[in-house]
Amino acid sequence: MEEVVASPQKPAARKRRWLRAILLLGGALILLAAGYVHYWLYLPIGTGPAGRAVPLEPFQSPWTDRKVLLVGVGDSVTAGLGSTPGRSYFQRLHDPRPDDFADVKGRTLKAVLPNLTTLNIAQSGSNSLQHVEQVEKKLPLQPADVFGLVVMTSGGNDLIHWYGRTPPKEAAMYGATLAQAEPWIANYGQRMNELFTRIDEKFPGGCLIFVCDIYDPSDGYGNPESAYLPPWPDCVPIHTRYNEALRASAAKHAAVCLVPMHAEFLGHGIHCRKFWSKHYRSADPHYWYFENLEDPNDRGYDAVRRLMLLRMVEERETIAAKQGN
């Protein structure tokens, strides 16, 4: 019986087959890498309303017909850096865009304060040291028939400037140890006391000051290196102590109302996609910050606006009680 021998595979065909396998494997690895980058490094912003619901009922009748001045004091968050035109929280409080979200239509200060005027003296990049001077020079003493509604953010830049590019110092303490920061924290608490007092003195007809505590773009992780910034081992304890100093100062002043921006923004920072995080927001796992990591984006400003309105609703009887004083 004749033996049948298979002809040997041509070397060129074998090379082509190996090349195809290598290209397919390489393409799969590239797709996997792109998927990793997209999922873990791309920060989704999301669409639509952000933050808490604001009830309509409190905005269906005036709170007071007295003259009211809405004043913005502080840093870039109140100045509106990172927002598109007309979408800062300050603007949205009193004069939102016509295309604003349906669930906040009619919820504006103009709807309840018919004699409202506005003044925003906040400045991007400023720190709490500069805010004392800001109030002294840019906020005039008001007539006795004017009631003040002051919205304010102060202290965030004290913590983050200048991202380790300069040695840490008071009001620019990035990279400091907690021991090094202790006297600066104490000074901040005293400075906020002074600032609240000076604002109150500018309104002999009375005022309410709505001050936000300081949010944390790291979502409590305290690892700025994940955002390609220099490591800062003590950033979380210093941030915590700064907020404690702010809250303690606010509690000493009857006119000051704390706005919980820190708690509201947890889960919307650079780790917003980590579903195992204790701050993960399954209903809205999106990034509320601008590309500079310091300021809110449009959705973040929507959330701040809602927090402010809700806090003002809680104080509307106080605002009405000031009428005729």
Rank of each mutant, 00 (worst) to 15 (best):
G80R: 03
P98E: 14
G74F: 00
D100C: 09
P98A: 05
Q91E: 15
P98T: 01
L93R: 09
A102G: 06
S88G: 13
S83I: 02
G80F: 15
V77C: 11
V73T: 07
Y89A: 04
P85Y: 06
H94E: 09
P85A: 12
D75L: 07
D95E: 15
T84Q: 04
P85Q: 02
V68N: 05
L81M: 14
G74N: 00
G72H: 09
R97G: 03
F101Y: 15
G74H: 01
P96Q: 06
G82Y: 10
F90A: 05
G86S: 04
D95H: 12
Y89S: 00
A102D: 15
V73I: 11
F101H: 14
A79I: 10
L70Q: 08
K67A: 15
V73H: 00
P96E: 08
P98L: 13
V77G: 02
Q91N: 11
P98N: 05
G86V: 09
D75F: 13
R92I: 08
D95W: 12
V73R: 00
L93W: 09
D75A: 12
P98Q: 07
S76A: 09
G82I: 12
T84I: 01
P96C: 13
G82M: 11
V73F: 03
G72M: 11
A102K: 14
T84P: 02
T84Y: 03
G74W: 01
F101W: 14
G74I: 02
L93P: 01
G72I: 07
K67G: 06
